[in-house]
Amino acid sequence: IPKKDGIFFIGIVVYVVMFFLPWTHEIKILNVSLLAWGGALLFLLAPITGIILTLIDSTDR
């Protein structure tokens, strides 16, 4: 697995674990827990990172 793809995979695992730690449950922004905002942000972060990794991958050209 190319290193940058491996880093993406590990990054997602770390991101998910970080937002599932108990401290995110009680902090609220606009009356919605930080855990939910973390999930919402991932809606955009995951595909945008996937697009960038594809565009910089020279092996597909």
Binding site: P2, D5, F8, F9, A36, F43, A46, P47, G50, T54
Partner: peptide, 23 residues
């Protein structure tokens, strides 16, 4: 069911496709 549960359930499919695309 609330935003916290629905966002983490739905974003699973998005993350899955992003990982599948590079792997």
């Amino acid at each position: 069911l609330g935003i916290p549960f629905l966002t983490w359930m739905t974003v699973g499919s998005i993350v899955g496709f992003a990982l599948a695309s590079i792997l």
